[in-house]
């Protein structure tokens, strides 16, 4: 039911869109996410994009993990 991998939005038509991940294309709905543009990444659940993943946030997320490893020396 749930796909934890982000899909890249490659087509938008109102609330209908097409997402692509690892070469697989899926119809997705984007009712729950605002300001979606082509090329954005979203998390998809039961055919719906439930959140957009910003590159910035992902980088911050990696930094969070890195801070710990750095502190461990």
């Amino acid at each position: 039911m749930c796909l934890a991998v982000p899909f890249k939005v490659i087509q938008i038509d109102g609330n209908d869109a097409v997402g692509e991940s690892l070469g697989i294309r899926r119809d997705i709905r984007i009712d729950f996410v605002k300001d979606i543009n082509l090329g954005d990444y979203v998390i998809v659940h039961a055919g719906f994009a439930i959140e957009k993943i910003e590159k910035e946030a992902a980088l911050k997320n990696l930094r969070l993990i890195k801070e710990v490893t750095d502190a461990l020396g």
Binding site: P6, Y41, A58, L62, I65, K66, V68, T69
Partner: peptide, 14 residues
């Protein structure tokens, strides 16, 4: 970028 979460650098130390 997303793949980096599979094995972030230095996760071995954690």
């Amino acid at each position: 970028l997303w793949d980096e979460f599979k094995k972030p650098k230095d996760i071995e130390r954690i």
